[in-house]
Structures are given as structure tokens and as C-alpha cells.
């Protein structure tokens, strides 16, 4: 069950502060890295929302992000709509797709849920990959960023865009935290803990899980709009299942079921990747080993493990330790 503890608030402020400082005082390249981190962090929050709190380990979050990016680009580039309504339609597409996936898969669990989401994600990937009208595997370009000139800033400036990304990340974190603290979010945690009992006290758990997937899709959709505006170009690569796998890796690395852990994980992974790629062409191997180690070490992740240490040393009035091992997934 989610609590915005003081430790989590401090970590959030430190993480966002670090990103803002890194973007402000760093080079153009550092600003690009910050954008990349914010996109991955938003996607990871979105996945933690459904996997860490709802037990739905999705392998189609890359696809949800991609669908939003494609819908946004179709509207703005192909049909010439202004960028804000296009973005709204992009988000709607993501919500509809993830809600549908959630509704269809609501009665499956464990490995079947993972496989089903993998299949739906790959279906979307293949669709865009084969679609000539949408550029096939070449993708589409010609995307414009939001026009914020009325605020006196130019979004094509890397620093402005990086700070915009950080603001959006904060917004998504707040949305997720509010949803998880609400009656809806509490009951989602209850379903994760014991779906059968939740039905016995009168909750239609299948509908509840589908709505949770749709909400998660909204957040993944936001990442998609940001991704499209970041590179100004989209391709089916966004939707491929290994992207979803990497997001899951970020969630595990930071700490599943902690909400702030995924932000920490995204910072670590992107930094690690860029540092490693300076030295070696084989950074995938190191990332893979880190992932294996993270799971073997108990699966709490970096933030999760630190939080666990602090809580077991100074137990608060209402302990809310994330479970060490997953449950209800088998």
C-alpha cells in the first residue's frame, strides 16, 4: 500500500533537483540525457503503478508509449492539427489501448498476463512496422514541439525542453501518488494482495484492474508525447518488446512498488548506459548482469533496499514494507 513518506518526498526532491542542476550546468549532451531520463522515468512510474501496486507485470508499456507517440504524430503531421489537441488524442489512444488490453487480460495472471501483454504489444509493433502510410520501419518525422512562446520560452532550446520534461515528470508522479492514495488506489493494492477476498467484499476486480491499466496507459502516453517531441521523429522501435523489458528493468533496479524507486532506477540506468558506452561497446552485458544481481539480491531494488534498512532500523507507527518476494503472481 502506497504512502508518500518523508524519505520518498526527500528522494523525489533530490532526484528532480539533481536533474535540473545537471541540465542547467551541463552541456547540450547532458540536457539530452536528462530528457531521456525523464521519459524513461515517466514510463517506469506508469509501469510501477500497475505492476508494483496492481500486480500486473506488463510487457506492453513500450507499445502503449509508442501508440500515443504515433497517434500524436498522425494528428499533428499527417492531419495538420495543432500540437495540443494532437497530444490529447495521443493520450486518448494510449488510454483506450491499455484499457482494452487490461480488460481482455483481467482474468489472466502470472506468466499468462505477461505473455498476453507481450502479444498485444508486439501486435501493435508489427502493425506500425508494416504500415506504409506511417512510414513502416522508417517511421515519421516533421514533428513540432509545443509552442510555449507565450511564456517567453523557446521549447527548441535543449535546456527549456529538459526543464519541461522534469516538470512533466513531477506532474506524472503527483498524478500517480494521488491515484494510489485514493480509494481506487487502496483497493488496487488490496486486489494485488488478495483478489479473491476483494471480490468477496463486493469489488468487481476485473473492471478495477482494467481501469488501473487505462490510468497507467495515460501516464505511458504522456511519456510517448514527450518522446515524440524529444527526437522530433518516431519509429516502430519505440514499441518493440525489449523497450518494455528495459522499463521493467528500471522498475526492478529502483525498487518495485515504491513509486520513487523507478525514478531513481531511470537515472541510474541512463547514466550507467552513457558512462559505459564511453568505455565499451558492450554495455548491454553489464546492464544484464546488474539486472540479474538486482533480482538475486532480493528484488527490492536500490531505493527499496535502502528504505527497507531504514524502516527496519526505525520502525514507524504504520510499517509499510514492500514484500521481499513477489506474491500473487505465481
Amino acid at each position: 500500500m502506497f504512502y508518500q513518506s518523508r524519505l520518498r518526498s526527500i528522494t523525489l526532491i533530490l532526484a528532480l533537483g539533481f536533474l535540473a542542476a545537471y541540465a542547467s550546468f551541463g552541456s547540450y549532451f547532458a540536457r539530452e540525457i536528462v530528457i531521456e531520463i525523464t521519459i524513461l522515468a515517466i514510463l517506469a512510474i506508469s509501469l510501477d503503478f500497475c505492476a508494483g501496486f496492481g500486480g500486473m507485470v506488463s510487457l506492453c508499456h513500450g507499445a502503449i508509449m509508442g501508440i500515443s507517440a504515433y497517434a500524436f504524430t498522425i494528428m499533428s503531421v499527417k492531419l495538420g492539427l495543432p500540437s495540443v489537441p494532437s497530444a490529447m488524442i495521443g493520450l486518448m489512444a494510449a488510454v483506450v489501448f491499455s484499457g482494452l488490453v487490461g480488460w481482455v487480460t483481467a482474468r489472466t495472471s502470472g506468466i499468462f498476463f505477461i505473455m498476453a501483454t507481450l502479444a498485444f504489444g508486439q501486435m501493435a509493433y508489427t502493425f506500425f512496422f508494416k504500415s506504409r502510410w506511417l512510414g513502416g520501419d522508417d517511421g515519421m518525422g516533421g514533428i513540432d514541439r509545443f509552442d510555449l512562446s507565450w511564456l517567453g520560452v523557446d521549447m527548441n532550446d535543449a535546456l527549456v525542453f529538459a526543464l519541461f520534461g522534469i516538470a512533466v515528470l513531477l506532474l506524472v508522479y503527483v498524478i500517480a501518488a494521488i491515484l494510489l492514495r485514493s480509494g481506487f488506489g487502496r483497493i488496487l493494492s488490496g486486489i494485488h494482495s488478495n483478489e479473491n477476498r476483494m471480490q468477496a467484499v463486493g469489488i468487481n476486480t476485473a473492471n478495477h484492474k482494467a481501469i488501473a491499466m487505462a490510468a497507467s496507459g495515460l501516464m505511458a502516453g504522456i511519456a510517448g508525447i514527450l518522446a515524440a517531441q524529444h527526437t522530433l521523429y518516431i519509429s516502430p522501435e519505440l514499441l518493440i518488446w525489449t523497450v518494455s523489458g528495459e522499463v521493467l528493468l528500471v522498475v526492478i533496479l529502483g525498487g518495485i512498488g515504491t513509486l520513487i524507486g523507478p525514478v531513481v532506477g531511470a537515472i541510474m540506468l541512463v547514466m550507467l548506459k552513457h558512462e559505459l558506452s564511453n568505455y565499451t561497446d558492450y554495455w548491454h552485458m553489464i546492464v544484464g548482469m546488474v539486472l540479474i544481481f538486482a533480482v538475486l539480491a532480493g528484488g527490492r531494488g536500490i531505493f527499496g533496499q535502502i528504505e527497507y534498512w531504514l524502516i527496519t532500523r526505525h520502525p514507524p507507527k504504520a510499517p509499510h514494507l514492500p514484500p521481499a518476494k513477489e506474491k500473487d503472481l505465481a
Binding site: 500500500m1 480509494g183 481506487f184 467484499v201 504504520a318
Partner: peptide, 26 residues
């Protein structure tokens, strides 16, 4: 058939929230 990894207060809260229609409080 309980919510094992939660506190007793949270357990009771879940049942009470479910029964009072608070699952739609977003």
C-alpha cells in the same frame, strides 16, 4: 483469507472502502 502483507487497520479499511463504494474515488 486475509490481506497478508498489510496491517490490520489497512485490512479493515479495504473492506470498509469497498463496501461504501469508495473504489470509484479516484
Amino acid at each position: 483469507n486475509l490481506f497478508e502483507h498489510l496491517t490490520i487497520r489497512e485490512n479493515l479499511m479495504l473492506a470498509a472502502a469497498a463496501a461504501t463504494g469508495k473504489s470509484r474515488w479516484f
